[in-house]
Structures are given as structure tokens and as C-alpha cells.
Amino acid sequence: MTVWKRVWKGRAGYFFVLPHFGMYTLFFLIPVGWGVYLSLFDYNVFSQEFIGFGNFATLFSDWLFLKALGNTFLYTFGVVPLWLGKALIVTVLLHPFRNSIKTFYKALFYLPHVTSSVIVSMIWLWVFNPTYGLLNYFVKSVGLTPAIWLGNKFLAMPSLIFMQFIMGGGSTIVLLSAAMASIPDYYFEAAKLEGASSWKVFTKITIPLLKPTILYALIMGTIANFQTFSNIYIMTQGGPEFSTISIGYLVYTTAFRDYNLGLASAMSMVMFGILAVLGFLQFKWLGSNVEY
């Protein structure tokens, strides 16, 4: 059967996916393609000159871009494992409770997810305020020396990671809880009858059976955190001394402060390439399903 005949045969299905595909093309594929195109130009809104891979050459010789790249990796690999760890622990701890209690705690952890990231960042700005902030109030009350959390180049990034760790992971908890509920109880009962310890149950049953969901959360978390922008924009503007500058923030300032849209597009392409490679590696290493 030719391709056209197969398409014709499944025309009803194609008809139904057409609106979505049309929107996807219009609002995603074309802008992405346009971004690839722009990355080959010295484009500053009002003038455009083809420079081939010139923007990419500029990027990889620019210390600020390399610093932003390093920071973005640091932030992503700082936040994602903490998120996942927190989500796993909370999910396992909540699992034995009855549904109403589980729902209450899941809603509690999910709450920051439905709050504007701008509002969350502004609240944490006050928490981290060096002179009048809540965190230093507690630090002082236990007799320790207060720190300038967002002003110290060694503390600023860990502070942002800490904030994201506390506020994030709600959606992962919801996902993992749903996945955990689908694991048949007799696996756990059988393991207990065989005398398996809680740790063994966790590592040999819970984790392997949650692996597809963990993989999903890992990939989505990596993508989301690699593109981090709003908290940096509100809280540090990439400082102090560029210690928290991320690729997302640099793309924004390059495009809309310096009006260098070609260079900003090239940065986005590099970010896209890195995320594609990371996603591929994560699938390769963690993609195998487990069945008992």
C-alpha cells in the first residue's frame, strides 16, 4: 500500500489531529525554525547580515556565555536530584496513609506550583534579605553569624538551589504518588513475608517499578530547570559577579537589552542541543522498563 493510500485510509484520524498539528506547526515548529535561521545572522531587529556560524564562534570564545553554561549545569544538577529525592521520600512516606491524608499533603506540596514564580521569588528575596530577612533572623537566634545569601558569590547559587528545592517538586510528588498507587500491594506483602528490610523493599521494588515515572520526572525537571529564568531575573539578575547567570537569563538580556537577536538565537540553539543530548542520555541509561 502506498503512503498516500495509507493516509487516505486513516483520513478520519488525520482529520482529528490536523488542528493540533496545525497549531504545533504555527506556534512551535515555525518559530523554532526561524530561531535556527536567525542564529546564522547578525540580526539586531533593524539590520540583518548573514554570518554563518559566526555567532556560535563568538559564543564559545565568550567567557560570560561559558560561565552561564556552567552555572546552568550547576543549577540543574543541583535542583533536579534534590527534587527527585524529596519527591521520592515524601511519596514513600505518604503511601501507607489513607487517601484523604495523602490528598491533603499532595495538595500542600503542590501549592507552590500554582503560585506565580514571581511572587515566590519576591517572598524569598525578603527571606534572604541580609539585614532584615527571616533566614538571618533564625541564624542569629541560634548564635551563628548571619550571611549575605544572595550577595556572596559562593552562597548565591546554593541559596537559589535551596529555594527551588523547598518550593519545587510538587508535581513530581503527585506523579510518583499515582505511579506508586498502581504498584500491586502483593509485591510489598510478598517481600515482607520473605523478610526483606524496608530499605530492600525501597531499592528492589519501589524504585525499579517507579523507574518510568522517575525517568519522565527527570527529563521534564532537567528541561524546566535548564531554562530557569524568572527566579534569577527577580532575585539576582545573574549576580553577584555573574555567579548565578544562567543561559535563559543571558538569552533574555542579549535579545531584549542588547537587541542582538542573532546571538541570542544561537544561545538558544546551543541550549536546545544540550537538552536533546541530555534527554537522549537519560533515556539510554534509565529507559529500560522493569517487570516482575
Binding site: F128, P130, T131, I148, W149, L150, G151, N152
Partner: peptide
Amino acid sequence: APKGVEALGVYD
């Protein structure tokens, strides 16, 4: 003047 200038902006 209070310390922490490096972390503050105009609205602070």
C-alpha cells in the same frame, strides 16, 4: 550603612 550592599537594589 548596613552590610549586604552586594545583594541589594534600589527598592531595598
